[in-house]
Design a protein around this nucleic acid. Structure first.
Length: 857
DNA sequence: CGGATCGAC
DNA sequence: CTATGTCGATCCG
């Protein structure tokens, strides 16, 4: 996939693994065979620092594998048997809630950047070419791929493989423009489509298909060959498009791969439907059917007509499968998995795990060490995997092996970090390094500003000339966003690193600055909601309690509820006996909230207080900014005090440096006498690589575009929530509160704030329990669980209606489809979370079944 | 929290 | 000579 994969050093010294893509299927074509390619690459690579580092990384992976195998060897049969029961229990649950009702499409432009460049420069059409630079390629055309020239390969190596290779520099504006055109088409099939990058998107066309059934044929009829394929609506059915041009304006991207024209429209067809379809074409009119395949074919046709570029697509009941499918008939093809359980399992059966998104080079290798290469293997070893991997990992594996994935397309939540980094030729002068650091901070500040973000954690990333990467972070008690603010933190980290290395200089090839720990708008929003709830609830509540609640609910400014950091900070504040008993941190500790919208809780608890927690000085004329600056200075000047340890940058650094010294000796111990000072700009190519088959680049603007999609964020977007008290059950067990005495049963924590009724659905028998008493319910679950794991497994009928509704959406009382199979859907949500924040955004990915699993354990 | 690592594009 | 950049997630300490 990525470069690393291709250059992976095999454990047994067999040299680079190499994926050939389409190289090997065209006998007699120009190109190189696998062995030659590998040989050339090896020659170009061996002995380089990069190669050494790859070897090292590879060995680390091997060690991990060894450790894992040793762990495996110590497992007993009974352990595995037990695990088997538990895993199958979950599998059963997942199977039961499999949702086949959605039609998800993954669309992927073929060799996007290269295709665009070829389109715009016909001279390139029949030549091997790549987009990128001498140091890094983003993508290559299919001709170049025959020579082993792939995305994420340095240009100079590509040149060795293919001396005639044309390398075209990136032209993002162009790609963006084309991307926009394509997205316009996407939006007609799913206005909520999810762009992944400039050339790739997920669509849920379920609704479109339903509507499409009612469409008259005219709406599915298209003219071939107008530069802009137009729908043959009544008014323009007499459209004056020149038949001449219709001669496939498609680029000859793939000589032997036909473009989408009536006469050659056989999709190299692994699927018959591809073939039959085009009898409907008469002259230069195409009519598409109403099926999913036809709709997608139509979409691809329109893309090609509009942009002269081809796309590939996958159609399946969930995102994971759709993505795998889109790769199957690439380029310029499509593949469908019908919404049929059997079809899914057939497809999954021999699927190599590496094809699955989320399974990368390392995971593949680890699993291979266990003899797992296909999804069938993955399923068979599920018990073992549950014992060797983390919960999240093996849950993921289980989903994959069952062919499950997200059935709902969601936009990502808010961004969690932002960064910028730069690669350059060796730099060892501290002065230059500070300068660069400042520049990075400046760039980052600009980006932050564009999105109005401010964060509390600054991370410095350094890569030395041996390719060793080191990151050092520092979290401060206030938010930073300007160049100066970021730099003041970053430079301290850099200083520490330079001091640590001295008298040797740092010999860097890359530096990056990242900021995270954002305090963002949504959060403010959440805050006001929760404070509203709290207030409406109990004005009599003591301030401190409310502050606590508010803190939990907003998850901010300190994301971890009970984190070490928070505790320290709370302690510190108490020690400072500032103002009231409130430990509300938002005001005291992070007065940084520059927005006026201080929450109501805040306001009630205390007024903004600009007393410096370090020197205790107070200035009436301080504004927030001045105040923050002051604290910053204070922190970097004042001697450490017990109370302040955790916020002191130096201390943090000292601690991390200790670690660094032990674990990272190699980083800076290289002794050099001569110091090269080079031009920073030298080789500061910023050429993101791309997938071997797909272009991958996401520039920052795109990322932002994705995050700021025009589509409004629906605060409740995927809350298919089962307010299932099983969660409570789980929580109690965790903290040992479980009680058999009903009277002692803790009332649901949500009772105070959440206005919704709690419905108890047993996770085992799936039957709603007619009680509102948690303890009663818990007893039922226990009984249910004990009486029948095996029994239930036997009863399990895999052919049951997968659409059987099993969850109840409590908020509106409607029944929703079971969705446990949806990896990113919170199938069970802690009531606490609900109560905290009814509109809270669900974490981007699935913690989904964590509780269930813990439950079963 | 901090740091390293993985995976994706 | 010459091997990316950005982001999210997770794991471990």
């Amino acid at each position: 996939m990525d470069h690393q994969e291709e250059q992976e050093i095999a454990p047994s010294n067999e040299g680079f693994q190499f994926r050939m893509g389409l190289n090997d299927n065209k006998a007699g074509m120009e190109g190189l065979d696998k062995e030659k390619i590998n040989k050339i690459i090896m020659e170009a690579t061996k002995g380089s620092k990069f190669y050494d580092n790859e070897l090292k990384k590879d060995q680390q992976v091997n060690q991990r594998i060894e450790k894992m195998l040793q762990q495996k060897s110590q497992l007993t049969i009974s352990q595995i048997k037990k695990a088997q029961v538990q895993v199958d229990k979950l599998a059963l649950e997942l199977e039961r809630s499999r949702d086949l009702s959605r039609v998800i499409v993954h669309v992927d432009m073929d060799a996007f950047y290269a295709a665009v460049e070829m389109r715009d420069n016909p001279e390139l059409k029949d030549k091997p070419m790549a987009v990128g630079s001498m140091s890094m390629l983003s993508t290559s055309n299919y001709l170049a791929r025959r020579f082993g020239v792939r995305a994420a390969m340095p240009g100079f190596i590509a040149k060795r493989l293919c001396p005639n290779l044309y390398i075209v520099p990136l032209n993002f504006d162009k790609y963006r423009a084309v991307s926009k055109e394509v997205r316009e088409i996407f939006s007609e099939y799913d206005p909520n489509f999810l762009p992944l990058s400039l050339d790739e998107a997920y669509l849920d066309i379920t609704d479109h298909l339903e509507e499409r059934l009612t469409w008259p044929e005219e709406r599915r009829r298209f003219l071939v060959g107008t530069g802009n394929s137009m729908r043959l609506d009544v008014e323009n059915s007499t459209a004056k498009c020149e038949p001449e041009e219709t001669q496939c304006t498609s680029p000859e991207l793939f000589e032997d791969f036909p473009t989408f024209l009536p006469d050659q429209c056989h999709d190299r067809s692994r699927q018959d439907t591809e073939r039959e379809n085009k009898e409907r074409t008469q002259e230069n009119v195409l009519v598409f059917g109403t099926s999913a395949e036809e709709a997608v074919r139509e979409m691809r046709f329109r893309i090609e007509q509009k942009t002269t570029l081809t796309a590939s697509a996958g159609i399946a009941p969930n995102m994971m499968l759709a993505k795998v499918c889109s790769d199957k008939n690439k380029p310029n093809g499509q593949y469908i998995i019908p919404h049929d359980r059997q079809a899914v399992t057939d497809f999954i059966k021999d699927l190599p795990i590496r094809k699955v998104p989320g399974i990368g080079k390392v995971t593949e290798k680890m699993l291979r060490a266990l003899g797992i290469t296909t999804c069938t293997d993955l399923y068979q070893q599920r018990a073992l995997l549950s014992l060797l991997f983390s919960d999240t990992s093996w849950h993921n594996f289980l989903h994959i092996s069952l062919g499950l994935g997200s059935t709902r397309i969601e936009r990502d939540g808010e961004r969690k970090s932002m960064s910028t980094e730069r690669t350059f030729s060796e730099m060892s002068s501290a002065e230059e390094q500070y300068e660069l650091c400042q520049q990075l901070c400046k760039d980052l500040a600009e980006d932050l500003n564009k999105e109005g973000l401010k964060g509390r954690t600054v991370t410095l990333k350094l890569k030395n000339i041996k390719f060793e990467v080191k990151t050092r972070a520092s979290t401060v008690s206030y938010v930073v966003s300007t160049e100066d603010e970021i730099f003041s933190v970053a430079k301290e980290i850099l200083k520490a690193e330079i001091d640590l290395a001295s008298p040797e200089p740092l010999r860097l090839r890359l530096m990056g600055v990242r900021i995270s720990g954002f305090l963002s708008e949504n959060e403010k929003h959440q805050k006001s909601i929760t404070s509203f709830l709290s207030l409406s609830k109990a004005t009599k509540t003591k301030c401190s309690e409310m502050a606590d609640k508010s803190d939990q609910a907003t998850q901010a400014p300190a994301p971890q509820r009970e984190s070490f950091f928070n505790q320290k900070r709370a302690a510190r504040q108490q020690g400072l006996e500032q103002g009231s008993t409130s430990s509300e941190q938002n005001v005291k500790c992070a007065p940084i909230e520059q927005q006026k919208e201080i929450t109501e809780v805040d306001q009630i608890c205390e007024e903004p207080d600009f007393t410096c927690p370090i020197c205790m000085m107070k200035q009436s004329d301080w504004d927030l900014e001045a105040f923050n600056k002051h604290i910053d200075q204070c922190l970097s000047k004042s001697p450490p005090s017990d109370n302040l340890q955790m916020t002191k940058c130096e201390d943090v650094l000292a601690a991390s440096n200790d670690k660094a010294q032990k674990s990272n000796e190699g980083f800076s111990d290289d002794l050099r006498k001569d110091v090269h000072i080079k031009n920073l700009k030298n080789k500061m190519e910023t050429v993101p690589p791309s997938d071997d088959l797909d272009d991958f680049v996401i520039d920052k603007n795109t990322m932002r575009a994705i995050h700021n999609q025009d589509v409004p964020l629906n605060p409740c977007k995927d809350e298919i929530i089962c307010k299932n008290p099983m969660e409570n059950h789980q929580l109690e067990s965790d903290v040992g509160l479980k009680t058999t005495d009903e009277s002692k049963a803790p009332s649901a924590p949500s009772s105070s704030v959440c206005h919704e009724e709690t419905i108890f659905i047993c996770p085992v028998c799936n039957i709603r329990q007619d009680t509102s008493n948690l303890a009663v319910f818990n007893r039922h679950v226990d009984v249910c669980l004990n009486k029948g794991i095996l029994e239930e497994l036997q009863e399990h009928n895999p052919n049951q209606d997968p659409r059987r509704p099993i969850k109840t959406d409590l908020r509106n009382g409607t029944t929703v489809r079971g969705n446990a199979g949806n990896r990113s859907t919170a199938r069970t949500k802690r009531p606490r979370a609900m109560q905290q924040n009814p509109t809270s955004k669900k974490p981007k990915t699935n913690r989904s079944s964590l509780t269930i699993d813990a439950f079963f354990k």
